[in-house]
Write a protein that binds this DNA or RNA. Sequence first.
RNA 1: GGGAGUUUAGCUCAGCUGGUUCAGAGCACUUGCCUUACAAGCAAGGGGUCAUUGGUUCGAAUCCAAUAACUCCCACCA
Length: 901
Amino acid sequence: MEIASKYDPRAVEEKWYEFWLEKKLFHSEPDNRRAYTVVIPPPNVTGVLHMGHMLNNTIQDVLVRRARMMGKNACWVPGTDHASISTEAKVVKMLSEKGIDKRSLTRDEFLKYAWEWKEKYGGIILKQLRKLGASCDWDRTAFTMDDIRYESVIRVFVDLYNKGLIYRGARMVNWDPQALTAVSDEEVIYKESHGKLFYLKYFVENREQRTENGVLGKDYIVVATTRPETIMGDTAVCVHPEDERYQWLKGKRVIVPGVGRVVPIIMDEYVDREFGTGALKITPAHDINDYNLGLKHSLESINIFNDNGTLNENGGKYAGMDRFACRKAIMKDLEEANLVEKTEDYVNKVGHSERTDAVIEPKLSTQWFVKMSEIAKKALEVVENGRIQFHPEKFKNSYRHWLENIKDWCISRQLWWGHRIPAYYLELGTESGERRTEIIVAVSEDEARKIAKEKYGYTGVLRQDEDVLDTWFSSWLWPISLFDGIRNPDNEEIKYYYPTDDLITAPDIIFFWVARMIMAGEEYRDEVPFKHVYFTGIVRDKLGRKMSKSLGNSPDPIELIEKYGADGVRMGMLLTAPAGNDLPFDESICEQGRNFANKIWNALRLVKGWTVSSELQQSAENAVSIEWMEQRMACVLEQIEKDFEQYRLSEALMSTYKLIWDDFCSWFLEMIKPAYGSPIDRETYNAAIRIFERLMCMLHPFMPFITEEIWHILQTCDENENVAKLGENSSVMMQHMPVSVFFDQRMLDDCDLAREIIAGVRNTRNSKGLSPKEVLDLFVVKGDGVGFNPRFDGIVKKLGNVGTIEYVSEKVDGAVSFMVGTTECFIPLKNKDIDVDAECKKLEEELKYAEGFLASVMKKLGNEKFVNGAPEKVVAVERQKKADAEKKIEALKAQIELLKK
RNA sequence: GGGAGUUUAGCUCAGCUGGUUCAGAGCACUUGCCUUACAAGCAAGGGGUCAUUGGUUCGAAUCCAAUAACUCCCACCA
């Protein structure tokens, strides 16, 4: 059977994914093995796969597949997030394209559309993950709004409310005028924006003037603002109490320009005298600081905006206008009325909504909050004391800072798509005849009714809160709710799978998600939700820009997979992505992965092409080759294990890559490769197949598809032993991961020396323009004990195409030479002139370098302080260097002499 | 404004508690090869004052300080 010389991943990848699914190899049930659990950071249910997901899920898959092969009961739970704001926005948009206005629908009608939308587009992203090879337990696929998760969220809300950790209150919140909802502080992104600073004149009431030494001064105060449209809401002007410039205004009142309202001058130390004119206009309804000052000084609060960011009836002639249009209009009017002193360019930070990018409007409204101070303490502690480890560790700093300065979490959203707040309102008449509203928080309306009756004897209508909860209020329960640990805290699954092991996520949701999961874990399990958090970097393009839809600089992951194969793309991503480092992604990196897959494929072709002889005796070289390869694998395995312990996945992959490409393909296979047309002995062949298999196991977590394909083909190679073990469900992913064993470093060093000699021979050929086919003889000057180990003679002969190797004690005349360490090698050039001059020049350069090196060593050794101060070992090393250098110089000098003769 | 991090070859990055793992790896590059596994390849090779300046030390890429550049996070300066 002819095998194609190019590896084609497409058919292979599809075939094996189907196989894994069919055999349910990703499925996990609690048993007596140790559990290894990962929960997926649930992507937006209506999202599509982007490069960030690719990176994130590749890393998860590597860890999960490796754990599985290490004998653990690996469980990777997939799922999606309902993403309330962005999904609702998408549905609203879809409806408006159909000519349907959300406001014309009832809540139930809208939700029906939303669920339809979710059914249609939801889960595309999970399908895409299969193409990547993700070994998720699909039977466990969850959704943050499915029954179990919904009920868990509601129960937690009720519980926290009863514990006094959730409260309802009127506060200044971040209002998104596009999504028409409040958002949490974390959902506000501050962006630098180039705006203007407007200097407006506020005339003193009755045009009273300042008197300075009997001379009349100004009759107005200038206030600098970036938001002139808010002057309709001004209820004071504030200056610093110690500001000399404004003492004359104490107790006076001023006229808001263009509005005509008279407002007081107040004094407060909050004002920065250096900024602007040192005078601040106060708009309590539309600025958090002004709001606080308003409370302090009992100022009136005038709301001038509608929820959608247009001016309301308090906006006077500007009512109905958008806030930014109003800014222009009002400035024009003020200019005309000569109420503007000047306008400056100004750069400041403006808050934008994370989801809609609309400019956030501070707004006073009644919302639900979670009290954070107490639960934050525990969450900080478990990271500080190492119960949870961050990789890389530097994220501990920002985590700590956030938790130490935490504010209450606004969790209500004025949306319909989400978990509806289980708060019920009832109107009670009181004895004095007034009406009073009571709130009952309960897991269901029935429950609420029961409480209403018991507590208030009320049997009338209950009105449920219209708002839903912040999406993260369900995400923070994810590691628990996935195993139904909220509703059934003692069930077998939660006890077995929780706490999970590793969480892989991007650092931008450390506060949104990671920190809050830790809080929920402590609150509801009294146990951390995971032991390690691996923060991936952000995927950027070649120019260092974040990949985004709007820039169009993000490649389509599915197209990449089609082009390079999932294995190739996985390898490309992993190679450039150490934990926490941003990943400058360039499509061409996937080529390396694709090429690697092809390399392995061709190694298979080579091995498959051999004819095997059971009669043939194993040669000594082959025996040594196998021994060496085994040692080499043990050595690299040790390194890889260390790398995994430290979550250095790219290093682990690189080690595996070099082991396979360099050690296995370039050296080992060449060592044992029989001459064309000749068979290979059975013993060597079987050993090679076993080594190949183990290499596929080692590589499998990184490149699951090709390793599965090759592993299966290898099973058919070793007829004596392996056919029987290929049972129905056999898969490379069910094999044991090879583990490191003791290895003989001396053996590896000896072989390295042999490899260097081979390189020396090849180099000689190259520089002398000799054909690789021409057989050369090699003379090695015997060292004093240490040096070249003749065990490798056969290998040197084979790979260097060397005829004879002789160990001599004298230098060889009429030969080119090279040195490996302190070992001198000579290659006589039969029937060839040696370019004496060139050879001398080369040697003299080497000599010069060696002398320089010796000089620096001598300088060190000549330094008494060094000899006395440095540890014995270090000095001994220097002495050895000196001896080696002297030996080398001597040898070089002798060689030059010889040549010149 | 506060905090954190980064700076090592053309690119992306390793270099732990100072000393033979000390200047490394992969890719890219150069030269020669279509050598019956692989040109998505083989063989060989060339690249770096370890950001700058000082200091500590017998000895610094490594420790300390200052400077510069870049990145990220946090914060209500109108």
